[in-house]
Nucleic acid binder design. Structure first.
Length: 1113
RNA sequence: GGGCCCGUGGCGGAAUUGGCAGACGCGGCGGAUUUAAAAUCCGCUUCUCGGUGACGGGAGUGAGGGUUCGAGUCCCUCCGGGCCCACCA
């Protein structure tokens, strides 16, 4: 007998059994669920009025709970969608029952590449396929009985919505980032204010020095009075400040998708969508100056209640680093080019060791140099290298980390050593970061080291590794006893351990720190920081006098030190004792006594001497930077990995830009009241696969070519010919602000109504009244919270995409006074992935689930009989383990589905789908039903008398379910209800015909079950209240039930009696005993006395309610 | 290569603050009911040793060590798995 075990195996028969007339089964569930869903819809149960609207209750606190709105695809909902949606549904229902005004909306993220790709495949217009998909998604979501306020539904493709998306773009376009405003952190201001500052002379007229799209030459240009400037010059300056600008930059170009992509959309050098190759290509595109917000996006992260991993990911993506920009003088630089090469470094302290320089293939210096024939280099070779680097995809660039490069023929001068150093060209330097050029310090940078080794460039040590530094120093101070062969290793290792510890008490200067460590080692004081190494068998234990740090570094330090001092280098140690010098690389020598972290060579020809000897890295960096600034050779600089956000796509299915170009090619924003710029209905939306961007909207020639009057461009003559921008916005645009629109989806005069936005987004926090929060502006100093959506649930895959983009838009809107909070999402939660079982052969290849069966408890591939191992994998078509929610609902009902997904495990964890386990939840609901409903008659089964034990369990369940919902632990909440129902079932007796719960108890049970299985709960509630005062009320509208705290504690508790930590007995004692009384009572008990008979009691630990631990020997 | 997270029965998981490990569910085994089956209800189900049995002994949260009266939980090392980032100077 074999058994199918794969998840989507044959339908389970028990789900469709006949049974008694009123049994809870799939047919009944279907009937109940559809009936209550239409009742909720008809009554508008989950319609939440806004402030000022009829039915709005201002006395209630608010709760804004947001789901990531889905991207409606043709495939319909998969089982991952309802996981997060059920979780928020439970919370919202609970919050509503607990007296909150709950905003819980749903809508559709409907513009974007996949819909367009799908349309191209099927030949059906994306507008049509998307609408069909939305209808299907809505039907599926409504079948779950989710408590969305459907009156707030919208799709990002609605003209009424994207009109405002375009409006936000115009706002950002019309803004600049004033780095001096906003208490030093910077703030967006309207561009008109910048013009005023230029006109009045308050601000020097020059190109924005932080603008990534301009090189140093443009940046250093000087301009005359504003009134005297040409239109082109004014635009050059203003555009360099605009937060949305047209910039020629090296971008990610994906020929297969026929569009450019943002950095965030490129993963491992391939497009996030489709996995197609991506090239670097200079293109003129719409960009957002998100880099201007780098500091604020980073600084506000710790104030958010977000998963640590997501905050870390964003912080790393923003990638702030502090360093210096250093100018290197070029020897015989190309004509016309500035005679300097600017680099960015985080280690200005290693400037002594810069033995060559590298520029990116796209660096302007190369272009200029080639244009004059690249003297000093093989011009053909250089040209070939630059060309091939450009034609390589990112994948190809990353495939081999082997360093390639060409000497440019140019030389520069190291300002500290005065050495002439060569300038190379290599693609390991990226044009997009820093200045696209580096000073190479091969001794202390792994990449520079590899490059230097590959091309035979000099390597010069300038930072003495800590370990070496300590050992060298130790050798110079060691007493004869310490130099004793047996003690030397221990002595040096102890010093190392202390030097490398992160102890706060340790001095920061290398020399002081060394003395501190030396003192501790010599006095052998067992302070809190220093504990003896007690590991038997460890190397330390064999070394006399060993002292180690009880820290993570101990063992590492030890092994390092022993290796350092062991067989390999013992001879070198001997040399140190002899006071001989230690050679390093090119024959440079460290001074023997007093050697510390740094070794400095005299700076031949340098104007000022830079002394770094003995400094720790942080201090050396600081001193080097100051020196550079004093010498006029560089400046302090903060850099970000974050690049400006490429915002245009050459595709059809997206929001058109509200931008036109006049006959001079100047861009103009469309006026607010001319919005929306409607997407033209293109019949031919086939993309053109090309090496050059061919925006599809170009095909709509009538639409593209229009007049200023037609397009609604203020400041131009009505009849002036203008051309529309033919790029479209990326799929992210609509999701950047949808959570705001939900606050007032119908608002016609504003993107969101002021009052609604303030109410739903600016939450009063615990201890702060709403009025106080409003008065204090936006930031709540007391709780350090920034307001925003109270709970946002969605996948972790958006950590650096949607969640970063939305924060950026929100901050701009905040700066402009359009929204009241600096952050959009206060609390973020990621639901885990729902995976599925799959099977793996011995060679790790995968087998689809339907080709595997279970024989004698082992999984076997049917075709070959080969044993396979069960693993978990992402659901995929090829593994044939995708589960369709519609099928599951048809077989068990939505309540069972909801319960099952919530019961699988912690919400944030990824969990495998197990079709067999669904039956468990189905049976639970059947039992719950049977406990209160007579399966023969359909009448309620109401007990006359309260069973005290059962009542305690009920109160406990009420308390636990409420607590567990608050902390999003739905699995344990459900377990508590199962336990209660199981107890009640037992009370029914063997025949199942008895009664278990009183009317009041059934009420409570129905109410706590309501957030989880709302349809079943309503049905029970309706039966219960028929003919009473509450007739016609809904369970969903009732308050969350209370419980009696007195019923949570028992009079007596069973505690464990431990003897030396081992449980030896269990005794029952009164629950209210304090520690002393408990100890006395337990020790006096005969069974305990027997335990300790003949032993001496050394110590007794009594923990009331838990245990008594007796230490006796 | 770097960062983050996780290892608990045959499986999913529970143990909220360092205090009786394995709640609850799946699967499995046994029983009641039934002409029979399904469904339902009840019981058992970490491993191991001893005992016909009620029961008793021992071990046990990836491995090893540490702190503690007491460790799944805290610290260290190692092993295994997952996720994210990845030439960012």
């Amino acid at each position: 007998m074999t058994q199918q075990t794969h998840p989507d195996g044959p339908a389970r028969e028990h789900a469709a059994d006949d049974g008694p007339a009123h049994r809870y089964n799939a047919a009944r569930a279907d009937d109940i669920e559809r009936r209550w869903q239409s009742v909720w819809a008809d009554r508008g149960t989950f319609v939440q009025p806004n402030p000022g609207e009829e039915g709005f209750d201002a006395s209630r606190p608010k709760f804004y709970c947001l789901d990531m709105f889905p991207y409606p695809s043709g495939a319909g909902l998969h089982v991952g969608h309802p996981e997060g949606y059920t979780a928020t549904d439970i919370i919202c229902r609970y919050k509503k029952m607990s007296g909150f005004n709950v905003l819980h909306p749903m809508g559709w993220d409907a513009f974007g590449l996949p819909a367009e790709q799908y349309a191209i495949q099927t030949g059906v217009h994306p507008a049509e396929t998307t609408r069909t998909a939305i209808d299907n998604f809505r039907r599926q979501l409504q079948r779950f009985g989710f408590c969305y306020d459907w009156s707030r539904e919208f799709a990002t493709i609605d003209e009424d919505y994207y009109r405002w998306t375009q409006w936000v773009f115009v706002k950002i376009y019309g803004s600049w980032f004033d780095t001096d405003a906003g208490e030093g952190a910077g703030r967006a201001r309207p561009i008109e204010e910048l013009v005023e500052e230029f006109e009045s002379g308050k601000r020097e007229i020059r190109v924005n020095p932080d603008a990534a799209e301009h090189d140093g030459q443009v940046r250093s240009r000087r301009f005359g009075a504003w009134a005297s400037l040409s239109e082109d010059d004014r635009r050059l300056v203003l555009d360099s400040y605009r937060l949305a600008y047209l910039g020629e930059q090296t971008v990610n170009w994906c020929p297969k998708l026929g569009t450019a992509l943002a950095n965030e959309e490129v993963i491992d050098g391939k497009s996030e969508r489709g996995g197609y190759p991506v090239f670097r290509k200079p293109l003129r595109q719409w960009m957002f100056r998100i880099t201007a917000y780098g500091t604020r996006l980073l600084d506000d992260l710790p104030k958010l209640d977000w998963p640590e991993s997501t905050r870390t990911q964003q912080a790393e993506w923003i990638g702030r680093s502090e360093g210096a920009e250093v100018s290197f003088e070029l020897v015989d630089g190309p004509e016309g080019a500035a005679g300097e090469l600017l680099v960015y470094t985080t280690r200005p302290d290693t400037l002594f060791g810069a033995t060559y320089m590298v520029v990116a293939p796209e660096h302007p210096l190369i272009e200029a140099h080639l244009s004059v024939g690249a003297p000093g280099a093989d011009a053909a070779e250089l040209m070939a290298y630059v060309t091939s680097a450009r034609n390589r995809t990112d994948v190809e660039r990353q495939e081999s980390k082997e360093k390639t490069g060409v000497f440019t023929g140019i030389e520069a001068i190291n300002p500290l050593t005065g050495d002439r150093i060569p300038v190379w060209c290599s693609d390991y330097v990226l044009m997009g970061y820093g200045s696209g050029a580096i000073m190479a310090v091969p001794a202390h940078d792994e990449r520079d080291f590899e490059f230097a080794r590959a091309f035979g460039l000099p390597i010069l040590d300038v930072v003495l590794p800590r370990t070496e530094a300590v050992i060298v120093r130790a050798a110079s101070v060691a007493t004869p006893a310490e130099r004793d062969d047996r003690h030397w290793a221990a002595f040096a290792a102890d010093l190392l351990g202390l030097m490398m510890s992160d102890d706060d008490a340790a001095p920061s200067e290398f020399n002081d720190r060394f003395d501190w460590a030396l003192h501790l080692v010599r006095t052998r004081r067992s302070s809190e920081q220093v504990v003896a190494m007690q590991t038997p068998g460890s190397p330390a234990a064999d070394v006399p006098g060993a002292v180690g740090m009880n820290r993570g570094t101990t063992r590492v330090v030890w092994l390092d030190a022993l290796e350092e001092l062991g067989a390999a280098t013992h001879a070198a140690t001997e040399e140190l004792f002899a006071g001989r010098q230690r050679a390093v690389n090119r024959g440079e020598a460290y001074a023997a006594p007093g050697v510390a972290a740094y070794s400095v060579r005299p700076a031949e020809g340098a104007c000022v001497a830079l002394e770094l000897d003995g400094l720790a890295t942080a201090e050396a960096k600081e001193r080097a930077t100051s020196w550079l600034e004093d010498a006029g050779l560089g400046r302090r600089k903060v850099n970000y990995k974050l690049r400006d956000w490429l915002f245009s796509r050459q595709r059809y299915w997206g929001e058109p830009f509200p931008i036109v170009f006049d006959e001079n090619g100047h861009h103009h924003a469309v006026s607010e009241d001319s919005l929306p710029v409607a997407l033209p209905a293109l019949a031919d939306y086939q993309p053109v696969e090309s090496d050059e961007p061919v925006p599809l909207l170009g095909k709509a020639t009538d639409w593209v070519s229009t007049t200023a009057g037609e397009a609604g461009v203020p400041g131009l003559d009505e009849t002036a010919r203008v051309t529309r921008e033919v790029n479209t916005m990326p799929g992210w645009a609509g999701s950047c602000w949808y959570y705001l629109r939900y606050c007032s989806p119908g608002a016609g005069d504003r993107f969101v109504s002021l009052d609604s936005e303030r109410y739903w987004m600016l939450s009063p926090r615990p201890g702060v009244t709403r009025d106080e929060a409003l008065r204090s502006g936006t930031f709540d100093e007391t709780t350090q919270q920034l307001g925003g959506v109270d709970l946002y649930v969605g996948g972790a895959e958006h950590a650096v995409l949607h969640l970063l983009y939305a924060r950026f838009w929100h901050k701009v809107l905040f700066d402009l006074g359009e929204v009241s909070t600096p952050e959009p999402f206060h609390k973020m939660f990621h639901q885990g992935l729902i995976t599925s079982y799959a099977y793996q052969r011995a060679d790790r290849s995968l087998v689809p689930v339907d080709e595997v069966e279970e024989r004698d408890g082992a999984h076997v591939e049917i075709a070959t009989g080969e044993h396979v191992t069960q693993i978990t994998a992402k659901m995929s078509k090829s593994l044939r383990n995708v589960v369709n929610p519609d099928d599951v609902i048809a077989e068990f009902g939505a309540d069972t589905f909801r319960l099952y997904e919530m019961y699988m495990g912690p919400l944030e964890q990824s969990k495998p789908w197990d079709t067999r386990a669904i039956g468990g939840m189905y049976k639970f609901l059947q039992r719950l039903w049977r406990v209160v409903v007579d399966e023969q008659t359909g009448e309620l089964k109401i007990a006359d008398a309260t069973d005290e034990r059962l009542d305690r369990e009920l109160h406990r369940a009420v308390a636990k379910v409420g607590d567990d919902i608050e902390r999003l632990a739905f699995n344990t909440a459900i377990a508590a209800m199962i336990e209660l129902v199981n107890s009640a079932t037992q009370k029914l007796g063997a025949t199942g015909e008895g009664t278990a719960l009183t009317r009041e108890q059934i009420e409570k049970l129905a109410l706590i079950a309501c957030p989880f299985a709302p349809h079943l709960a309503e049905e029970v509630w309706a039966k219960l209240t028929a003919g009473t005062d509450l007739d016609g009320t809904l369970a969903s509208e009732r308050p969350w039930p209370g419980y009696d705290p007195a019923k949570l504690v028992d009079d007596e508790v069973e505690i464990a009696v431990q003897l030396k930590g081992k449980v030896k007995a269990r005794v029952t004692v009164p629950a209210n005993l304090d520690q002393n009384a408990l100890q006395e009572m337990v020790l006096a008990m005969p069974e305990v006395a027997a335990l300790i008979d003949g032993l001496t009691v050394r110590k007794v630990i009594a923990v009331p309610g838990r245990l008594v631990n007796i230490v006796a020997t």
